[in-house]
Every structure is written in C-alpha cells, then in structure tokens.
C-alpha cells in the first residue's frame, strides 16, 4: 500500500487567535481586574493627580495648576519630624508584634489540633468588637487611678502613678494590642506547615532545642514573619486613631497630619501629596523586603 493510501486526510485545527486565547484564559480574572482598576487604581491615580493641584482656601475648590508646591511644603522640619516619629513608632511596634506574635503562634502550633482551633478563635475574638471601643477601653485601663495604676500601687511598683496614658508608650501599647492578631495568624500558618519529622530529624542530628529553633523553625517561619510585618507595619505607619485617643493629642503622627488636611483644613492637594509620599516610602520598604525574600514566599 502506497504511503498515505487509505488514510483520510484530517483537516488541521484552525489556530485560535492569540488575543482570543489570552482572553479565554483570563476571563475568570476579568471581574476582579475591573473592580481593582475602578476601585483601587483609578482612586490612587486621582490622589496622585490631586497632589499636584492647589486649593481655594475658602470654597475648597481644587484647581489643577500642576504645581509641586505641596511636595516642597512637605520638606519642612515639622512634617519630617512627624514622619520620622511615625516610622520609628511603626517599626518598634511591628518588631514588638513580631516577637510577641512569634511566641504565641509557636505556642499555638505546638498544641493538639482541638486546642489550636480554640486558641485561634481566642486570637480572632477581639475583632468582633469595634476597633474604636477596644481602643477607648485602654484609656480606662491605663489612666492614673485606673486598674493597672492601682495594681502597681498595691504591689509597690511605683512611688506615685504609672502615668502611661497620653504618652508615646500608650500609643505603642495600643498599636501592638490592635495589630498583634494580624501578626500571629500568618506566622502560625508558616509554623503549622512545618512537617513534624523535620524536628525529629534535627534532634536526631544532635541539634539542641535552641539550635533547632534558630536553624530550622525560624528560617521556615520567616515568610510568615515577613507577611505579618507587612500587614502590621503598613497600617501602623499611617495610624491616626490610636495616637489621637491614647496619645492625648500631644504626639503628632503622620496619620494625624494627613487626616487633618482632609477633615479640617480641606487642603486635599497637600493631603494627597502626603499620602503619595507615605505610599512611596512604603513601596521602598516593600521592595527591600522583596529583595530579602521572593514575593512568592511572602504571600
């Protein structure tokens, strides 16, 4: 039989146009993409556009003369000091959250499954109460002649009063308390994924508990620590409710200046310039973190 004899020629499948193929593959992502563009990218772009505008101080109408004055005004020492204060407080609170969060997450991950579930619910329960209410409750706890002050007095830990409320310490306590669960959860996820046999292997190879922790647990949990630090650090940097309530209005943070521009002064262009600058700083921090850890591991 001659070659090809008796073989019915099959028509070659028509190639799908490249664009149509791409659209078909990404159709499911489309609704999310549209929502992201409309409700995230566009507003963000508007904020960036506003930051180059100017405002009529009486009618608060914004004009777009494309000025860089708002960015230049930010260079004043008043705002730079507030920015530095916010950065340091945010870094400090994030570090404290990481230490406390790691210890708690590690403890939870080493419990039996049923106890783990209960403890995780306990971590989340505070979120069932309003953030404002939880923050105000610290006013009662930390004030002089409040329960902590009285306890410290009874135990003769202080000569007079604790005088913590309305200080940067009170702000730090408020931030750590509010954001700690956001640190615990990603670290717990990282720790929970570690195969128990790895601990055994490390022990068999002669690693002490401390060495196991330092050389095995910590590196494997690092993606969770970085994710938690991002989730805590970003909102902490722009935090203004906690400084307002627990700082007693004496500690000016970046978030307070920003909120004041939008709520009281009505200087939206300057407020936008502050927001864009803050966003730029955060993006640099994220970039640095990404270089330390591939993003795929972080998220």
């Amino acid at each position: 039989m001659a070659r090809g004899e008796g073989v019915v020629a099959q028509p070659r499948p028509k190639p799908i146009p490249r664009l149509a193929g791409w659209a078909r593959k990404n159709a499911l992502v489309a609704p999310t993409a549209v929502l992201t563009v409309v409700f995230f990218v566009v507003p963000l772009a508007l904020v960036a556009v506003y930051s180059f505008g100017s405002v009529d101080p009486v009618s608060l109408d914004v004009g777009f003369g494309w000025t860089t004055d708002n960015y230049r005004a930010f260079a004043s020492t008043l705002y730079l000091h507030s920015l530095l204060r916010s950065v340091f407080l945010s870094l400090g609170a994030t570090a404290a959250c990481a230490v406390l969060g790691f210890a708690l997450a590690y403890f939870i991950s080493r419990q039996p499954p049923r106890a783990q579930r209960l403890l995780l619910v306990a971590v989340i329960v505070p979120f069932w109460t309003s953030f404002i209410v939880r923050t105000y409750s610290w006013v009662d706890l930390l004030q002089n002649l409040g329960p902590i002050d009285r306890l410290a007095g009874t135990l003769h830990l202080t000569d007079s009063h604790i005088s913590i409320l309305y200080t940067p310490t009170a702000i730090a306590i408020g931030i750590i308390y509010s954001y700690l669960p956001l640190m615990i959860l990603p670290i717990y996820v990282s720790l929970e994924r570690i195969d128990a046999s790895i601990y055994n292997a490390a022990a068999d190879l002669g690693a002490t508990p401390w060495r196991q922790f330092r050389r095995v647990v910590l590196p494997l949990a690092m993606p969770g620590v970085i994710a938690g630090s991002i989730i805590v650090g970003i909102p902490a940097l722009g935090e203004y409710v906690i400084p307002e309530i627990l700082g007693g209005g004496k500690t000016l943070m970046m978030g307070n200046i920003l909120a004041n521009q939008f709520q009281n002064t009505g200087n939206y262009p300057f407020g936008s310039a502050l927001a864009v600058t803050l966003m730029g700083i955060l993006m640099i921090l994220l970039f640095v973190l990404r270089r330390k850890q591939p993003l795929g591991d972080v998220t």
Partner: peptide
C-alpha cells in the same frame, strides 16, 4: 504650658476631674 499638660482632648475633656486624676 504643654510639658505640664496631661493631654489635649476632644472628648470627655474633664472626665479625669471626677476621680481626681
């Protein structure tokens, strides 16, 4: 006077007068 102030408050400004703090 700020170094001597307990706080600048928006709400419950005089609340501490009740317990004497």
């Amino acid at each position: 006077i700020k170094p001597h102030l307990q706080a600048f408050l928006n709400t419950n400004v005089g609340q501490g007068l009740v317990n004497g703090s």
